[in-house]
Design a protein around this nucleic acid. Structure first.
Length: 624
DNA sequence: ATGGGCCGCCC
DNA sequence: GTACGGGCGGCCCATC
């Protein structure tokens, strides 16, 4: 039965009229309630809720949200949303939660059918729309839900079709949830309590509220500072462009090309204007100098760096061009109402990591000097500080923990520098000399080779890639890798075991207590390219995914602590192994200590033997 | 308008 | 018979 909660005298006979109080009475002893909202658009601090739907399989209540009084909203909030005993089931909860917060509601105990479905299928090749409610309805309930009506809902009143559509959107969620939970339990991704944060399911269902809050809070961009940096970028870009131009002018082989900066009076006839931002045009010009050059990427071009001065200039151009596009775009993402930037997270990638969209705040430049300046434009409000924490050497510690290699474990236990320790062993040199040049390449230090190796092995790096990365021959690279694995045999055993496990079972999991699963499909025993991929992904998933599990747990614990104590702290960003918060000035130092201990506590859930180190800093801006 | 490819930014 | 894991997106350019 569909109930329509409204003040209207006449309603469609298909529906029953009822009051908020009637509805609350019906839900009194429920443990699951299915929730959805219909809104005027995507959440942007301006769009509004039109309908709020609450229901179970038998009865769906469609509330005309515009007519709800403050008292009625309070009742719904206290008796349903804040009721710990009632699980609120959503499809894509993050969307609705932000709207509900905007109207003064708060929420605990959430289950998201979309997230559960993503967990169940991580790594699988799924078609577009696989996680939509329409698709879930079909798979789990064999029902064809209406997908036309959404978007045709307007604020002029609600037609019967709209109300029926809205009701159906919450009718099947509980059925879907129950079937998903069966699947999740079979894979040990959930236990009887789907909110248990020490299972993957419970972790994600708690984390969705945290990611909603990070998006809702947003992050402040100091606009005038940003414009200053943008000017610096433009100045630099101009210099680089003129440098390119000058070299083209001086190079006889490039006589017929010119760049826009070419002085009009000296321009020769029959010239072609080159857009250096175009890979195709750039390649055409470079082929005049190096007919065999394949593309204009940094990887390829840098091999020609010593052969012609234009190469270095074009590399500079590519980089500064990139920074320029960041500089140009970022201000467009500042919300008109909040004056802050609100990203949109995708909560569960195949490894369990999170990605960030529109804008991607996980790729704000930081490595170069100008990049660092761009990052420092992200600031706290007046009277607040930025407090950030990051896991130090997170992935390397995970390798140490699970390989149990004594060299790695001891390096972390004793707080030594792992790269230097391993470097001395791999190359058989004294630890004091790890920062000296290698015999095969005088511009590369021993320790840098080791660093590349240590990080690369978590990705299943081959001798070809190592050779490419540090510019040595494949034979030299192979010799280094052999020596390295001889020095730390347990690491090799561990990684080989993971690679084999993934290939034989068709899936791989992160460590206990989580065991986040990643499936491998679309391959057969002859498909060597795919098998190579699976092997590398099998090695990487427990490492990268373990990092993701730990960071998500830290976020959930931090969110709880902030709420319970009403701390003046906002979670504002997450970058894989880093968490950023905005904190009232007078509380910043104390918070940095709390944050450090909570992040370490989260890490200890996964790392039992190897210690974790968290670098927590109070700062005036987001920095490296 | 749309979409694929190039290339570079992040961890 | 491959050749480094996980991402996003601006820009160019071909295509419609």
């Amino acid at each position: 039965m569909i109930y329509y909660v409204t003040n209207q005298k006449q309603i469609d006979p298909l529906f029953k009229a009822c009051t908020v109080e009637d509805m609350l009475f019906y839900f009194k002893d429920h443990i699951d309630i299915q929730v959805d909202t219909e809104t005027t658009g995507f959440f942007d601090f301006k769009n509004e809720i039109l309908l709020l739907q609450l229901g179970d399989f038998n009865n769906q209540y469609v509330l005309n949200f515009i007519e709800l009084t403050k008292e009625q909203k309070n009742l719904i909030n206290n008796q349903i949303f804040l009721n710990l005993n009632i699980c609120k089931i959503f499809q894509n909860a993050k969307f609705d939660i932000k709207f509900l917060w905007h109207y003064g509601f708060d929420i605990v105990n959430v289950y998201d059918t979309m997230l559960a479905e993503i967990l169940l299928n991580a790594g699988k090749n799924t078609p577009d729309g696989f996680y939509s409610l329409f698709s879930l309805g079909k798979r789990y309930c064999n029902i064809e839900l209406d997908k036309e009506t959404r978007g045709k809902i307007n604020s002029y009143g609600f037609s019967s079709r709209v109300i029926e559509y809205a009701a159906n959107d919450v009718k099947y969620l509980e059925t879907i949830k129950n079937k998903q939970i069966d699947g999740l339990q079979k894979l040990e991704l959930a236990n009887d309590d789907c909110q248990d944060i020490y299972t993957v399911c419970g972790l994600e269902m708690n984390a969705v509220i945290v990611f909603a809050s990070i998006e809702y809070n947003g992050i402040k961009l100091d606009m005038s500072k940003w414009q200053e940096v943008q000017k610096l970028v433009l100045t630099e870009q101009d210099i680089v462009a003129r440098n390119v131009d000058e070299i083209v002018w001086q190079e006889p082989k490039l006589k017929k090309f010119q760049y826009i900066y070419q002085d009009l009076f000296t321009t020769a006839h029959n010239t072609t204007t080159v857009n250096w931002a175009s890979p195709i045009q750039k390649l055409k010009v470079l082929k005049k100098l190096f007919p065999e050059i394949q593309d204009t990427s940094e990887r390829i071009m840098s091999q020609y760096k010593s052969k012609h001065p234009i190469i270095g200039r074009l590399l500079d151009f590519n980089k500064i061009n990139k920074l320029d596009s960041f500089a140009k775009k970022m201000p467009e993402h500042v919300n008109k109402i909040t004056k802050r930037i609100h990203t949109d997270f995708w909560q569960i990638l195949d490894t369990g990591r999170v990605s960030s969209n529109k804008p991607n705040l996980q790729q704000v430049p930081s490595r170069t000097e100008l990049g660092g300046k761009m990052r420092s434009c992200f600031v706290p409000e007046e009277g607040y500080k930025m407090v950030g924490g990051d896991y130090s050497g997170c992935e390397l510690r995970i390798i140490a923990e699970f390989s149990k290699d004594p060299v790695w474990v001891n390096a972390f236990k004793e707080g030594k520098d792992l790269h230097s320790e391993l470097c001395a062993i791999t190359f058989g040199i004294d630890i004091k000399n790890v920062k000296t040049a290698t015999p095969f390449k005088p511009n590369i230090k021993y320790r840098d080779v080791q660093k590349t190796l240590n990080f690369g092995l978590a990705y299943g790096m081959s001798e070809y890639k190592l050779a490419d990365t540090i510019d040595i021959t494949v034979d030299q690279a192979r010799a280094i890798i052999d020596k390295f694995f001889k020095a730390v045999p347990k690491v090799k055993l561990f990684l080989d075991m993971l690679g084999k496990l993934g290939k034989t079972r068709g899936y791989i999991k992160t460590a206990k207590p989580y065991g986040r699963i990643r499936w491998f499909d679309g391959w057969d025993s002859h498909d060597f390219k795919r098998l190579g991929e699976i092997e590398r992904q099998s090695k990487n998933h427990p490492i990268q995914g373990g990092n993701a599990d730990m960071t998500k747990l830290a976020l959930v614990l931090l969110y709880r602590i902030i709420k319970e104590n009403n701390y003046p702290v906002k979670l504002i960003h997450q970058i894989h192994d880093e968490i950023q918060t905005e904190v009232k000035e007078e509380f910043a130092f104390e918070w940095s200590k709390i944050m450090e201990s909570v992040m370490i506590k989260a890490a200890c859930t996964i790392l039992k033997e190897v210690p974790m180190v968290v670098d927590c800093k109070v700062a005036e801006s987001w920095s490296k």
